[in-house]
Amino acid sequence: MQHTVGISQYKTASARGDVLVTYSLGSCIGLSLYDPEAGVGGLVHCMLPLSKLDPEKAKAAPGMFVDTGVSALLRAMYDQGAAQRRIVAKAAGAASLLDENGVFRIGERNHTVLRKMLWKNNILIAAEDVGGSGARTMYLHIDSGRTVVRSGGREWDL
């Protein structure tokens, strides 16, 4: 079954036929986590880097920010039986406008905070597809752990 992860949401899944999908990542960042041994996967779609922008909203929707979103997804993964040392992390998104003056650096900042958060949790990013100006859709297949990115009519594995 396909489960959609909306902007600022995170979900985990462990049924073999499950697919987690998040649509149109712009400067937002999508992070997929997968533990092959436990057969558990999770996906979060974070909009902005840091929850200090609006702590109240971060409480209501932790997935909105990268710092709170990554922590919430990790907790949910551990609750499902995943172990930190086995987790495979992949990221997509963090696109930017054609912004030579660097007015909106949301994508870049989302990516930086994501790396920091994972580093703090001793998790390396196994693969990523970030930057550019295209919107991306990201799928995580629970049976195989495949993370697939779709953008501009093309699809590829991460």
Binding site: S24, A95, L97, L98, N101, F104, G107, G134, A135
Partner: peptide, 16 residues
């Protein structure tokens, strides 16, 4: 466009 609400093939391919 940044948030990706209703983004299509044009994505973020615009200049602020």
């Amino acid at each position: 466009a940044l948030v990706g609400i209703g983004a299509g093939v044009d994505g973020l391919q615009y200049r602020p």
